[in-house]
């Protein structure tokens, strides 16, 4: 099963290396990872998706906790949470099929953010299934390049992760 971990870290040099290094060193596989600032200065939030059993995830969380720069580790898959990812897709597009593509993009509530004589760049936000679905449909026109941010997530409701 896939688990989404939220990790609050002191934003110090090397903190990211320590966290990502721990995954490879202990044989845990990172599916994707997203990092950014939080409301508290000096504290960054990492969202990491890992595949594995409950026992493995528990061990991952405990090992992460041992890193001095890590303040909190929380498994968001265990609770109701909003999860999103952003993807940019560069797809081959001629004058003739632009409107077809435009239609697909609208169905997925995406946006066209760049157009050139023979390509378009599309932005989509959503969950895993949505990403896969739009990729499948656009494949037909020729996907030239893809970039994804990795998943980010917040708990639903007013509950927050304490950063102290």
């Amino acid at each position: 099963m896939k688990h989404v971990l939220a990790i609050l870290v002191e934003n110090k040099p090397g903190a990211l290396t320590r966290v990502s290094g721990l995954f490879s060193r202990r044989g845990f596989n990172i599916e994707n990872i997203a990092v950014g600032e939080t409301v508290t200065p000096g504290i960054a939030r990492m969202t990491i998706t890992v595949e594995g059993s409950e026992a493995l995830i528990e061990q991952v969380a405990k090992q992460l906790h041992k890193l001095i720069n890590v303040i909190r580790v929380s498994n968001l898959s265990a609770e109701p949470a909003v999860m999103r990812e952003l993807m940019l897709i560069k797809v081959r597009a001629e004058i003739g099929n632009r409107s077809d593509i435009q239609q697909i993009v609208e169905t997925f509530r995406g946006k066209v953010v760049d157009v050139s004589p023979n390509s378009m760049v599309i932005e989509v936000t959503g969950n895993e299934e949505k990403m896969e679905a739009i990729k499948l449909l656009l494949q037909h026109y020729g996907i030239m390049e893809i970039v994804r941010t990795g998943k980010i997530a917040l708990l639903r409701g007013s509950k927050v992760l304490r950063d102290y």
Binding site: P13, G14, T17
Partner: peptide, 14 residues
């Protein structure tokens, strides 16, 4: 040396 010793120290500093 901080990079090299991350996996074998409890913590390190530069």
């Amino acid at each position: 040396i901080t990079g090299i010793t991350i996996p074998v120290t409890k913590h390190n500093y530069l």
